[in-house]
């Protein structure tokens, strides 16, 4: 029910946007994320962007997890 999926904003018109979700273009609402820009990834829940995804944080998380994986590999 609280499912939200990443979507890439392609075009913004007022409080709505065209966004690409898994290869499909959909109209979404930006009422909850008025600061979203073209090129941002947002989390879309029932047609509304509920947050802007933070690419830097995602990279940092993946870097950390890769370190864990490498360490585990060495130890085994």
């Amino acid at each position: 029910m609280c499912l939200a999926i990443p979507a890439l904003i392609k075009l913004i018109e007022d409080k709505e946007a065209e966004a690409e979700i898994g290869g499909i273009t959909r109209r979404i609402s930006l009422w909850l994320t008025p600061e979203a820009k073209v090129g941002d990834y947002v989390l879309v829940h029932t047609g509304y962007a509920i947050n802007i995804l933070d690419e830097e944080e995602a990279k940092e998380t993946l870097r950390l997890l890769l370190e864990i994986a490498e360490l585990a590999e060495e130890q085994s």
Partner: peptide, 20 residues
């Protein structure tokens, strides 16, 4: 970055599982 596939990696999963 697509924010989905990266977080389904079996390599990362193995690392986390062994650490847990």
């Amino acid at each position: 970055m697509r924010f989905i596939q990266e977080f389904r990696s079996s390599e990362l999963a193995k690392g986390l599982i062994s650490r847990i």
